[in-house]
Amino acid sequence: MPLFAQVLGPAFATLAAPVQALHAAPLPCRRTGQARIERGRHWLVPVLAALARLPKEGHALPVEVVFSACGQGEQWARRFGRWPMVSRLWAQQGRLHEQLGAVHFGFELRARDGGIDWSVRSVRVFGLLPLPTRWFDGVRCREAWAAERYTFLVDVTLPWIGALIRYEGWLDAQ
């Protein structure tokens, strides 16, 4: 069963067909598209971005994502222009977990209007140090189908720092 179908359960069937198809495609698979990345200006942004291996800022960047099987989950090898961003995802206790650099996120996924909203429910750094979830109330993640394209938006705002990163764009439907 596809990873996102495991986490969403019956709600997976309510996703727009192209969103379902992206998450149910046989692995490995590759998608390409375009993105825009903006980073915040606080002096801690480069440090935090390095911990999570977030990409650098850029506009109209070519995007490539290679989805592959990894243990009981998936690996997403993204490339925004020249900048790689690789993460490992898996299902555990009804949540989607993502390891991104030194940061481990636990997400609750919710199907809405044919897309998927991701909500942060837990964060650990270096696998040991839990961070207060309320620090991540300013995180918005959304996958959708708009204008005949699979679209994504990740917008991260943190207390005391403000904007960390915002990246949005689209991938081909294939």
Rank of each mutant, 00 (worst) to 15 (best):
P2L: 06
P2F: 10
P2M: 01
A5F: 08
Q6I: 13
V7P: 05
A11E: 14
F12K: 10
T14N: 08
T14R: 14
P18W: 11
P18K: 05
V19W: 02
V19K: 06
Q20E: 00
Q20Y: 06
Q20S: 08
A21V: 15
A21T: 15
L22W: 04
H23E: 00
A24S: 09
A25R: 06
P26Y: 07
L27E: 01
L27F: 03
P28V: 05
P28D: 00
T32N: 07
G33P: 15
Q34H: 13
I37S: 08
E38H: 11
R41L: 14
W43P: 08
V45G: 04
V45I: 05
V47N: 02
L48K: 02
L48C: 05
A50W: 14
K56S: 09
G58H: 11
G58Y: 15
H59Y: 11
A60T: 09
A60I: 13
P62L: 01
V63K: 03
V63T: 04
V63E: 01
V63S: 05
E64H: 11
E64C: 02
S68I: 10
S68T: 12
C70M: 08
G71Y: 07
Q72L: 05
E74Y: 08
E74N: 02
E74M: 11
A77T: 08
R78D: 06
R78Q: 02
R78M: 02
F80L: 01
G81W: 06
R82W: 03
W83Q: 01
P84I: 08
M85F: 14
W90K: 07
W90M: 02
A91P: 03
Q93M: 09
H97L: 13
H97R: 12
E98Y: 13
Q99G: 05
Q99D: 00
L100H: 09
G101K: 13
A102N: 14
A102G: 12
V103E: 04
V103K: 12
F105I: 09
F105Y: 13
G106S: 12
E108I: 10
E108T: 13
E108Y: 09
R110G: 05
D113K: 12
G114C: 01
I116N: 00
W118R: 02
S119T: 14
V120K: 05
V123Y: 11
V123E: 12
F126E: 02
F126Q: 03
L131V: 13
P132I: 01
T133C: 01
R134M: 08
D137Q: 09
G138R: 00
G138S: 00
R140P: 08
R140N: 00
E143C: 14
A146H: 15
A146V: 06
A146W: 15
A147M: 11
A147V: 14
Y150F: 14
T151G: 04
F152E: 00
V154C: 11
V154K: 05
V154P: 07
D155C: 08
D155W: 06
T157K: 12
L158N: 00
L158A: 00
P159V: 02
W160Y: 09
I161V: 14
A163S: 04
A163F: 12
L164R: 07
L164P: 03
I165N: 05
I165Y: 04
R166W: 04
R166P: 01
R166G: 00
Y167I: 09
G169P: 04
A173V: 09
Q174I: 10
Q174A: 03
